[in-house]
């Protein structure tokens, strides 16, 4: 190939590239303007963990130690004592070290009473690493702040403005498809 032909090939290649890029130039930006526009985090997404309390302010957690046992990085520390009135145990201490947490949500899967859940709060950059070593008060606080959360036992739950805990509609539930399809069929039948 002569030098002229080679140069012509290269110019054509660059022109093809520019043409391809030019087709897409007018598209809206793919990025989000983060601090001004917050992304929507799906409830199943493991951003942070929280402890949920019942509507009357009592702990859902029954201190069964399942989450402590299943944690691969062993960041959960629970201390419990016998319930003075009635059966079971009550929590004395529930520490979760978010620094070493792997965010696998095995604890959420293991929880039999949906006490530890995944919440959508994600802005947790802090200047002091010790602030990420959460105790029960902080985890309860995260749970009270949460509007929507997920746990395998009860699915996605929401907190209404009045403070009531309700189940989210099937459009937001994992596995809500079966219910939606049934509803659609029922609607057609009627």
């Amino acid at each position: 190939m002569s030098l002229f032909a080679e140069v012509w090939e290269a110019v054509k290649a660059v022109a093809t590239g520019l043409e391809t890029v030019h087709k897409r130039v007018r598209q809206p930006p793919a990025t989000e303007f983060y601090p001004y526009k917050k992304p929507e985090i799906p409830p199943v997404s493991v951003q942070f963990l929280a402890l949920i309390q019942n509507e009357d302010g009592s702990d859902r957690c029954v201190a069964c130690l399942q989450c402590e046992r299943v944690c691969p990085s062993q960041v959960i520390t629970i201390e419990r004592k016998r319930n003075p009135e009635g059966k079971g145990f009550v929590l004395e201490r529930f520490d979760l070290d978010f620094v070493n947490c792997m965010y696998c949500a095995n604890c959420v899967e293991a929880c039999p009473v949906s006490a530890i859940v995944t919440v959508g709060a994600f802005e947790h950059a802090v200047y002091d690493v010790n602030l990420l070593k959460a105790d029960k008060a902080y985890l309860d606080h995260l749970g009270r702040e949460a509007k929507i959360w997920y746990s395998p036992k009860f699915g996605v739950e929401m907190r209404t403005p009045e403070g009531k805990i309700v189940k989210a509609p099937p459009e937001m539930q994992p596995g809500g498809l079966a219910e939606l399809l049934k509803e659609a069929e029922g609607g057609e039948g009627a």
Binding site: P42, V44, S45, V46, Y103, C104, A105, N106, E109, T118, P152, P170, E171, M172, Q173, P174, G175, G176, L177, L180
Partner: peptide, 28 residues
């Protein structure tokens, strides 16, 4: 992936006998 599996890059979603949770209704 995040909508169903719960994380973007390291979801820990498959488990023994299947997957950990059912898919999001809009997944398919």
């Amino acid at each position: 992936a995040e909508k169903t599996a719960g994380a973007r890059m390291l979801p820990n979603y498959f488990t023994f006998g299947g997957v950990r949770r059912d898919v999001h209704p809009e997944f398919f």
